[in-house]
Structure formats: structure tokens, C-alpha cells
Nucleic acid binder design. Structure first.
Length: 512
RNA sequence: GGGCUGGUAGCUCAAUGGUAGAGCAGCAUCCUUUUAAGUUGUUGGUUCCGGGUUCGAAUCCCGGCCAGCCCA
């Protein structure tokens, strides 16, 4: 072995490992240290009373994200769940030994400090550190402090780094949590009961989508992952839970895109003795209160169109068929032959497959030419009955069903129905299904309906899409913590000399 | 599945067929109220992978992998 050590100063991982090794050799294991935390960062900052410096003592903890070293004193910032707080470490105050230790701490390390609050000459509430403990050594460097992390792949695969260095990502994903928790409080307050229903199902019902398949070894049977919550929540209505909801993960074995993740979160709500009109009130109240209480405004900017979406006013109601007639310029559209409908769709610049059913051709016009233009909250009413076999037929037009689709920002946000509760009609509608909307028939669900399900309004809300809308995100991946990406090869971590566990854990020194 | 764009230091980005660079981070130095702190010096590269063209390839061509956008 040579006397001159290899210059590893360029390799930040190696430098940090070396520092850790020295600490351990000196009898201090940062990963066994613990520390007091009396406040989160922003709560601590609020404790400071103007003009009264160094009176209130706090203990805060978090990741070191900024260091400004001025020789015998340093300003630094630590990041916790609430955000950042500045700390001031002064040699005179903490003493030589602690100061020397602090000088060795790296950006990214997790520390706890205790001290008094004061205001700097630039007006920032800061902790004047009296004691300081390293509680977790970061062996990897943080991404760049100014630009943050911008490589999309790393943002998604290593979300923790994104959350540490990109404040807007942290805020957006925190907002998602607040949205979901507000929805729970809103529904709970109206005596809705939150339930949990099976993810592993024998029949993927409640929607038309290709499911993921799996296998249960002990039972020796195949299962699918649910594609919808609907049919089990309706069984709860049969069972006498009159107002139920579930916020749960659905799985669809389909493409991945800006708007689609293979697993996504749905809210489904069912209210006995209500109907789709009742659901309109419910969703409007839910979303306006959400805007008011969580966003603090009922007017939000729609990222894609630049328009302002106003949740505060009256929401437009319009019939599906009227929208189609208006867009095609053909008052008799629904009386036209299939060939005429194909020609009409092509005139609008759409490609239609002649194999499609007529309602599918019409719906192509809706989803390509109409839906994207519905930016303000719009209830699209009375959809063709083929589009959903689970709703009640409209009394005044038996070719349509009593439903609405709430569309906001050009996206379908919440479909709702007057739920079908006639077991015979339900069975007939399942059997008469056609085209891509065809659902698998869940016989056990039909048995439940034969026991009697109260009339009910039901609604589904795509939580991810709602979050895209309310957070101004551009992609579903920005509102899902760990979006699905293609599997990358094995993650390689440089091998390091194995730690001698008996030495590391033999005699941990009490924390400083 | 198809089209387009991209992949260069830990991170953010340059280098338009001719010596692979900068900022931040790191290392070393000065600085006891900084705000992307400042100062002086400095280390660091399988240019995603595999072929090919060329005197010479990060750059051009072919194939693959991964990502983003658009389309189906």
C-alpha cells in the first residue's frame, strides 16, 4: 500500500463515506443518534415575537439544504415537512468542539438543533443554535441548489430528491393530500360512511377496461385487480349503508400517457334515496368548498387553455344530444343512418372505424370535438344509454339515461347516475351491451340487486384528474408521487467495503 | 404500436466532424448577520449502450435502451 492516499476529493460519495468512517472510528454513529424536535419549521417561526430576540427556545430538525460558511459563524437552512428555517451557528455560542463538528457536516445531512429565535438584520427569523446533533449522514450529494432537479426521469424515479429540492413539487403533492382530506371531511360531515371493498375480484365490473390479472396460489384461482369501485359499493346499499364512499386505487391494463397511469385513484359516492340531480348538488358543493377552503379562491387558471375557470358561479347544464346536434350542425343527427354518421364525423376531420357501433361514432365526436372545449364546469346531461348500462333509463327519452358527466377544463371529472336498481332491467342491459363499452357481467352483483337496492344517486370522481386541474399540473405524473415508468435495469450502487456490524453497533456513544 | 425531440462531470447546461468546457456541488484557503453570500486556488468525463462511416465522431449513419411530447 502506498503512503499517499488516492485523491478522492472529486468523488462526493467517497468523501462522505470517508467522513462517516472517521465518525464511526471516533465512536460516534450518526445513524444511532436521536434528537429532540419541539416544533416544525414554520410553527417555530411563528413563535417569534417582534422585538423580543433570544427569548423563545425551540428544537427543530431536518435536512440541511443550504450552508453559508463565514469562517467563525455560519448561516444554514434546514428543511422539514413545513418548509425551511434558517439557523445560525456561531463559534462563540456553541463552543469549539461543536463548531468543529458542524463544519464537517455536509449539505443533505439530517440534523437537529436547539436554540433561541431571533431576527437577522435582513429580517429573517432564525434559530441561534446552542446545540446541534447529526442524526443521519447523507452519503449522496443533493442536486443543484438553484435549478433543482429537472431531469423528468429522475424526478419521477427518485421523487424524494424532487421533494427535497423542488419546492413547487412539494407544494403540489402536499396540495393533493389536502384535497383528499378535505373530500373526506366534506363527506363525513354529511354522514357518508367510508368503506373499503376488495381490490382482488373475480369479475372486473363497473366499467369497461382491460384488467390486470393475477393468481391466488392457495385458492388456486385467478383474480383480476379492480377497474372500478362501483359494484361492491352498491352491495353496501343493498346491505343498508345508505350513504357510502370509497377513495381507492383502480387498475387498468392500458396505455400510459399524460392523462393515464395504470393505477389511479377514484372517489365513488353512493347516496340512497337520491338521484343524479342530488349528485349535482353534492359535487358542486364539494368542489366549491374545496376551492374555497383549500385553494382560497373559486377562480383558478386553467394551465392548458390559459382561461380562468370559475367554480363560483352557476354551472352550465346541457344535453349530450344538443351538443352533438350543435357541433354537427345537423338537427336530425340521431335519425341518420350509420353511413351518414360516418360521413358526418369525417366531415369534422375525424377518423372513424366502420366497424364501430353508431353510438361510438357519435361519441367520438363528443370526446374529440366537444369535451376539450368545455372549460368551465359543465354538466353534460342525458347520455346515450349504450354508454353506461348501470344507470336508469330517462322517462322522457328512452334512448338516454339519467346521468351527468361533469366536465371541467376539457376533461371528464365526474360522471354520476341515477343508479339502476331493477335487477331484470340491469341484467338485460348488461346482456345488450355492445362495442368498447361492454362490461363483464358480475352475476353475484345481480343476485344482490334481486334482494333489493334502494334507489340511489351515485358518482365517481377521478382524484388524479381533479388534482391536475386544481394544482395546474400538466401531467398526471405530476400529481402521483411515484408514477409508473418502464422498468429500468437493475439499479447499480458501487460496492463498498462491508461495514463490520459488530464494530459499528458494539458501543454506541450516547448522543452529544 | 407510429412520428418527433432528447440522453455530455453528483446536478443544471455548453461544445454546429478537429485539444470535451462553465456554473453550482466537492476539495483546499480567507471571512463572526448571510440570502443563488462573497474571496483565492483546484480535482473531477465509458459524452446512455453496441456497431459503422471517417485521417479524426459527443457531433454523421444503423441497431438497441431510457425519457418527454404528439398521434393511434
Amino acid at each position: 500500500m502506498s503512503d499517499t492516499p488516492i485523491d478522492n476529493s472529486h468523488d462526493q460519495h467517497a468523501v462522505r463515506r470517508q467522513k462517516l468512517a472517521e465518525m464511526r472510528a471516533g465512536g460516534f454513529d450518526p445513524f444511532r443518534a436521536s434528537v429532540e424536535q419541539t416544533h416544525f419549521s414554520q410553527d417555530a417561526i411563528r413563535l417569534h415575537v417582534a422585538g423580543q430576540d433570544n427569548i423563545v427556545t425551540v428544537a427543530v430538525a431536518g435536512r440541511l439544504v443550504t450552508i453559508r460558511d463565514m469562517g467563525k459563524s455560519q448561516f444554514a437552512k434546514i428543511l422539514d415537512q413545513q418548509g425551511q428555517i434558517q439557523i445560525y451557528v456561531k463559534k462563540d455560542v456553541v463552543g469549539d468542539e461543536t463548531y468543529a463538528m458542524f463544519k464537517k457536516i455536509d449539505l443533505g445531512d439530517i440534523i437537529g438543533v436547539k436554540g433561541t429565535l431571533f431576527v437577522t438584520k435582513t429580517g429573517e427569523v432564525t434559530v441561534r443554535v446552542e446545540s446541534c446533533t447529526l442524526v443521519a449522514k447523507a452519503l449522496r450529494p443533493l442536486p443543484e441548489k438553484w435549478h433543482g432537479l429537472s431531469d423528468a426521469e429522475q424526478v419521477y424515479r427518485q421523487r424524494y430528491l424532487d421533494l427535497i429540492v423542488n419546492a413547487e413539487s412539494r407544494a403540489r403533492l402536499l396540495l393533493r393530500s389536502k384535497i383528499v382530506s378535505h373530500i373526506r371531511r366534506f363527506l363525513d360531515a354529511q354522514q357518508f360512511i367510508e368503506v373499503e371493498t376488495p381490490v382482488l375480484q373475480s369479475v372486473a365490473g363497473g366499467a369497461a377496461a382491460r384488467p390486470f390479472q393475477t393468481h391466488h396460489n392457495a385458492l388456486g384461482v385467478d383474480f383480476v385487480l379492480r377497474i372500478s369501485l362501483e359494484l361492491y359499493l352498491k352491495r353496501m346499499l343493498v346491505g343498508g349503508f345508505d350513504r357510502v364512499y370509497e377513495i381507492g386505487r383502480n387498475f387498468r391494463n392500458e396505455g400510459v400517457s399524460r392523462r393515464h397511469n395504470p393505477e389511479f385513484t377514484m372517489l365513488e359516492v353512493y347516496q340512497a334515496y337520491s338521484d343524479h340531480r342530488g349528485m349535482m348538488t353534492l359535487i358542486k358543493d364539494m368542489l366549491t368548498s374545496l376551492c374555497r377552503d383549500v385553494l382560497g379562491t373559486t377562480k383558478i387558471k386553467h394551465a392548458a387553455s390559459g382561461q380562468e375557470i370559475d367554480f363560483g358561479g352557476a354551472w352550465r347544464e346541457v344535453n349530450y344530444k344538443d351538443l352533438i346536434r350543435e357541433t354537427t350542425g345537423d338537427a336530425e343527427w340521431f335519425a341518420r343512418s350509420k353511413a351518414e354518421k360516418i360521413a358526418g364525423a369525417e366531415k369534422l376531420g375525424l377518423h372513424v372505424d366502420p366497424k364501430w357501433e353508431e353510438f361510438e361514432i357519435t361519441n367520438e365526436i363528443f370526446s374529440k370535438k366537444i369535451e376539450p372545449t368545455l372549460i368551465q364546469p359543465t354538466f353534460v346531461m342525458k347520455l346515450p344509454k349504450e354508454l353506461c348500462p348501470l344507470a336508469k333509463i330517462s322517462l322522457d327519452d328512452p334512448t338516454t339515461i339519467d346521468v351527468f358527466e361533469l366536465t371541467i377544463g376539457g376533461m371528464e371529472v365526474a360522471p354520476a347516475y341515477s343508479e339502476q336498481n331493477d335487477p331484470d332491467v340491469q341484467r338485460a342491459m348488461f346482456e345488450a351491451q355492445a362495442g368498447e363499452e361492454k362490461q363483464n357481467i358480475d352475476q353475484d352483483f345481480l343476485l344482490a340487486l334481486e334482494h333489493g337496492m334502494p334507489p340511489a344517486g351515485g358518482m365517481g370522481v377521478g382524484i388524479d384528474r381533479l388534482c391536475i386541474l386544481l394544482t395546474g399540473a400538466e401531467s398526471i405524473r405530476d400529481v402521483i408521487l411515484f408514477p409508473q415508468l418502464r422498468q429500468r435495469g437493475e439499479v447499480k450502487i458501487e460496492t463498498v467495503a462491508p461495514v463490520a456490524l459488530d464494530k459499528v453497533f458494539a458501543s454506541p456513544k450516547p448522543t452529544a
